[in-house]
């Protein structure tokens, strides 16, 4: 492999990683604070993509992506709030299994709601003119849109870091990750905090869905496809850790990209193998929280 091929493949992997990071960060944040593994996170991502497709179709592709991202984030956050208040809040004291099953119920429901609203056919979304085409890179060419995804992921990561580390909301979130009962003891409204965190996670999923829409076909089945990879990322990086999500996403994205080049048929297996190995060595993932007693 020559150097320019290497760089291009690396960039392709990073673009995939960027998308995975936005999705996984939300998943991980929700787990960290609420201790719920949200199987429906992929469904929220799919919802974001379909909403974005509708908005771009309405507004037109020239500027459509910006309102699409905003509308998707808000709308999906609202759905997230409904899920948290309507379902999860009633289950925090129950077994993990019941929480998992409830979110799986949501997966099934959202899949059919999306199918009902948007129909079974794939949709395609046009990117704004200035994000189309490719730029020269080390003698090869690289799609501008992939760079855009990387940029959005970096922005999302920075924003998330600021929220978590530089705001009072972030302080509460960090405290909740360590010990929610203590937080309730000092007078923080934990149940409202949980709703906000879940909405934030949902909004991230919605944004990821919206920005992926122009580069792919928007269709049913996006939910299950992304959730399994997002799980791999989160598990490798460690549940509840944003840094972990970043590292995990980079690893999975790059492994995916080079796996295709080196051993295409085994690329998928690599991810699960990596997941199993990391968990076996460090059961809570690279940066994960240990299981709370």
């Amino acid at each position: 492999m020559t150097l320019d091929e290497f760089v291009i493949q690396l960039m392709a992997g990073l673009s995939r990683a960027g998308l995975l990071f936005i999705v996984s960060a939300g998943l991980s944040l929700v787990f960290g604070a609420l201790r719920v593994i949200n199987l429906a996170h992929g469904s929220l991502y799919m919802l974001g993509a379909f909403v974005a497709a509708s908005v771009v179709t309405k507004v037109g592709s020239a500027i459509g992506l910006l309102p699409a991202v905003v509308v998707a984030a808000v709308l999906v956050a609202v759905v997230g709030v409904a899920i948290e208040i309507g379902i999860l809040r009633r289950l925090y004291r129950q077994e993990h299994l019941l929480q998992l099953l409830a979110t799986y119920g949501v997966v099934l429901v959202i899949a059919d709601v999306v199918r009902y609203i948007w129909g079974p056919t794939n949709r395609s979304v046009a990117a704004p003119e200035f994000l189309r085409g490719s730029i020269g890179l080390m003698g090869g060419s690289f799609p501008i849109y992939s760079l855009f995804i990387i940029a959005v992921a970096l922005a999302a990561g920075a924003g998330l870091w600021l929220v978590v580390n530089r705001t009072s909301l972030g302080r509460d979130i960090r405290a909740a990750i360590v010990d929610p009962e203590m937080l309730a003891g000092v007078g923080v409204n934990v149940s409202r905090l949980f709703t906000i965190v879940f909405a934030l996670g949902a909004a991230l999923a919605g944004i990821a869905g919206a920005i992926v829409a122009p580069s792919t076909a928007v269709g049913l089945g996006m939910d299950i496809e992304i959730i399994i990879e997002a799980f791999a990322v989160t598990i490798i990086g460690g549940l509840g850790s944003i840094t972990g999500a970043l590292i995990g996403a980079a690893l999975v994205g790059i492994a995916d990209s080079f796996g295709i080049l080196l051993a295409p048929r085994l690329a998928v297996a690599f991810i699960f193998l990596a997941m199993a190995i990391v968990l076996a060595i460090k059961p809570s993932g690279l940066f994960g929280l240990p299981e709370r007693a």
């Binding site: 019941l98 059919d112 709601v113």
Partner: peptide
């Protein structure tokens, strides 16, 4: 829309 129905039943049972 069988998934919707199964999902709804699942939610009802869990809740």
């Amino acid at each position: 829309y069988s998934h919707f129905i199964l999902g709804a039943i699942l939610l009802v049972i869990v809740l």
